[in-house]
Design a protein around this nucleic acid. Structure first.
Lengths: 224, 224
DNA sequence: CGAAAGTATGTATTTTTGACACAATAGAAA
DNA sequence: TTTCTATTGTGTCAAAAATACATACTTTCG
């Protein structure tokens, strides 16, 4: 009786077959453009549809562990930082069975992470964000859209740029990133003012060589 | 073989016992104060700990369906609007077994929803947000905190006030709600200006009676 | 070395935000 | 009814923030 009550509240096992998966929207920043990594299925019912990289979760891993594992299995990427977007649990989102997926996003520079095709992946490609294929599987069009919005929100107020910039970077590089992410043009002098007001950068007093003007290199402050 | 590939990517069933639950942070607005609904367990290992209302998901329900069902089972509340906060999947968050929970929040007026204790609930109570009990179970302190932040964010830019206001309301009522949620004092005239700039309200040209000053009643515009 | 490109900094201008006063309205008290 | 009081509705003005813009300095490249 006591056990029954307890169970009711939280511990009763699920009585159905259900997969929990993670899907990852990997955004790549290359040559001032944003890309997204999609995989294509060339077999089965969803032939010729593009999907976010994703896969099922196992018992001994956290959500982030799973995302890490899945992405490594499909691409060979390691040490990626993930941010959770949201969870999707509609009944008909997967036609074969019940699949609940937790969606993450990541921000990387593709040049740091060459795709090393692993396991049985048929095809995996970077797509320009302005040129995403029409034939997306399941509800992944929505997932991509939500992840993109979430990334921009995170950047605006938390300034999470992942590994898009090297440890030491110039203000021009940071501004360029901003302009690309938000598709806007900013005044150099005003941008500088705003960033310094935020008080999150420190000047390394080193100058970047090989580039005109001799700009200072900055880094993020420790305590953020 | 083809099937195997397909399965690897997304369809392989989970090979472990795992509960998927939803936990709901129900925020109540009463007498200009915010409350949160917590349940107490008086039996089992987690005796005398307070928890968010929550319960396991079944095969035929979406995440929101589940939240609806769970809240109804525990309190009798119906027709509540939910917003998803985030999903928690750490390995040790539940000591007895693996439990992944999707957290939602809701905003209601307790006076509209008297608690009708159902099933085997031992104790369920409204707590002042400034006076939340110390002995919260599992990671529910974090869940409450995250849900609270998320609610405030949603209000700031999307103005999602749930059912906290009647269909037609005065600007003073709206301002009062704002001031309480964000614990700030606002200038009446400036608040009015800001809200009208948002262009989300329309004047019903009716006046509220029984209150001094004869304020106009407003409602949200259709197309939001 | 000079030209070209880019950085760093200061100042003026516009826009947004915040502070503030007073007449009109409706309920409450006389 | 009349008076009193609490609350609504509206406009102006100053401060602050965002934006536009000019000029001097630094480095690369031919």
């Amino acid at each position: 009786m006591e056990q029954e009550k307890l169970q009711h509240i939280q511990v009763k096992p699920n009585s159905f077959e259900c997969s929990i998966t993670t899907d990852i929207a990997v955004f790549g920043y290359v040559e001032d453009r944003f890309k997204i990594l999609l995989t294509k299925r060339t077999v089965g019912d969803f032939k010729n549809h593009w999907f976010l990289p994703g896969g099922v979760m196992e018992s001994n891993e956290t959500l982030v562990d799973c995302a890490q594992k899945v992405l490594f299995a499909l691409t060979g990427f390691k040490d990626i930082h993930f941010e959770q977007v949201r969870t999707y649990g509609d009944l008909e989102r997967h036609p074969l069975k019940r699949v609940i997926t937790v969606c993450f996003y990541a921000l990387i520079k593709p040049e740091n992470h060459p795709i090393a095709l692993k396991e049985n992946v048929e095809s995996i490609e970077w797509f320009d964000m302005e040129n995403i294929p029409e034939n997306l599987g399941f509800d992944h069009a929505r997932l991509i859209n939500d992840a993109h919005m979430h990334m921009k929100d995170n950047l605006k107020d938390k300034l999470i740029v992942g590994e898009l910039l090297p440890e030491k970077f110039t203000l021009a590089e940071l501004q360029n990133l901003y302009e690309n992410i938000f598709s806007i043009k900013l005044d150099r002098r005003n941008f500088r003012k705003r960033i310094f007001q935020m008080d999150i950068l420190e000047n390394t007093n080193e100058k970047k060589t090989g580039v005109k003007g001799g700009p200072f290199l900055y880094r993020y402050k420790e305590n953020r």
